[in-house]
């Protein structure tokens, strides 16, 4: 075995190992954080009013927050536009990526093909806009710290490498899919020998490792925000509060 083959085998093993480590950390880390939120009591009524008065209404309010960002719309229209486009493009990209992970490919992922063409560019541009905004407004410049820039830079680099391997320096998709399915069926094969793809892949692994321990956790935390997910029910269901909450603090 030549030295280069040996090194490549070593590297391929490292990539496979890192993939599993990243996936496990991501899932367990996320579960650990979210279960922590779930188990922490909310001793006092905290709904920000005007609030819905039923559990169903509160669920609709949270769903609205997750899908449409109404509070940002009230606060700052330009930020709302940038953030919303960023997140929607991210969803399109994530769903489109399902085709590398599944066989047969789900219909939703196939349906995306006309928009998916643009989603990568839109996502990258939105990330760029959000980055520019942090630097351009004196208030956000004051507030932003290293983790804020790092998260955007990481996402931006993933977007750039993704766009490059898709549109400019093509990677063989059949190899990619074989590699991913191999990882998923616990029979890892060597990754495609395409440096840019490997960079893209490793950056995503890094993102997964970082996610549960960073502000990116807002994606899960938003469902646990007591000011938004509690109905204002105190006058209707005083007795329920009596029973469940009075001794918990």
């Amino acid at each position: 075995m030549s030295t280069s083959t040996a090194l490549w085998t070593l590297f391929a093993t490292f990539v496979a190992g890192l993939s599993y480590f990243a996936a496990i950390t991501f899932v367990l880390g996320l579960l650990w954080r979210l279960v922590g939120y779930l188990r922490t009591p909310a001793p006092l009524p905290a709904a920000v009013t005007p609030a819905p008065e039923t559990d169903g209404g509160a669920a609709v309010r949270v769903a609205g927050d997750v899908l449409l960002f109404p509070a940002l719309f009230k606060a700052d229209k330009a930020l709302w536009a940038g953030a919303w486009v960023f997140h929607i493009a991210l969803w399109v990209i994530l769903l489109r990526h399902l085709r590398y992970f599944t066989y047969p490919v789900p219909g939703l992922s196939l349906l995306m093909s006309p928009v998916a063409l643009w989603a990568g560019y839109v996502f990258g541009l939105a990330a760029l806009y959000l980055f520019w905004r942090r630097l351009a407004l004196p208030r956000t410049l004051y507030l932003s710290g290293l983790p804020d820039y790092l998260a955007l830079i990481l996402m931006g680099l993933i977007a750039v490498t993704g766009i490059l391997v898709k549109y400019w320096l093509h990677v063989n998709l059949v190899d990619v899919k074989a590699f991913i399915l191999g990882l998923m069926t616990l029979r890892p094969v060597a990754p495609p020998q395409h440096p840019l793809f490997l960079v893209h892949f490793l950056l995503v692994a890094l993102l997964m490792l970082y996610f549960p321990f960073s502000k990116l956790l807002h994606a899960g935390g938003i469902f646990f925000s007591p000011t938004r997910n509690q109905p204002y029910e105190i006058q209707k269901r005083g007795k329920r509060w009596d029973r469940e909450l009075r001794t918990r603090y």
Binding site: Y37, L72, T140, L143, K215, P226
Partner: peptide, 24 residues
């Protein structure tokens, strides 16, 4: 307090410092 108050625990983690509140 972090063990006893969901609001505090969640709010300590999930701020992204977007600045929407800054001038409010």
């Amino acid at each position: 307090l972090l063990e006893r108050n969901k609001s505090l625990r969640v709010f300590m983690d999930i701020c992204v410092r977007c600045g929407a509140c800054a001038d409010k």
